[in-house]
Amino acid sequence: MRSTKRETLPIATSADVVLARQKVRQWAIEMKFTLVDQTKLVTAASELARNALDHGKGGHMVVEAVENTARTGLKLTFEDRGPGITDIEAALRDGFTTGGGMGLGLGGSKRLVNDFHIESQPGKGTRITVVRWK
């Protein structure tokens, strides 16, 4: 996977979550994703950005246009410096929540993208990488 363009945005306030959504929308339109795919990408970005803010004490999002030999895609990376996730399998299960939410953020956004990768170190933070291919 080769990155052709990238941009980093901070996620420190709930207004940044809105900006992150708008940025992903703008890139998805530029890359000519269908409306349904744009909507899925923006919704996943919203869930993951909020996650980084509420559970990870903030961090940043990296937006990247990527390509491999066959196709192009939009890659989003969310990094936070929060407490980390001790049981990733449980965190991905629908209904699992440590906050006040629905527990759909992680598992739900996984269903909205093609690739989903999560790395977490307890005490250090979490990095979630997602790709939606065209």
Binding site: V36, T39, T43, D94, M102, L104, G107, G108, L112
Partner: peptide, 9 residues
């Protein structure tokens, strides 16, 4: 609507 249902709501 499509996205919301896929999200699980």
């Amino acid at each position: 609507a499509i996205t919301l249902v896929e999200l699980g709501m």
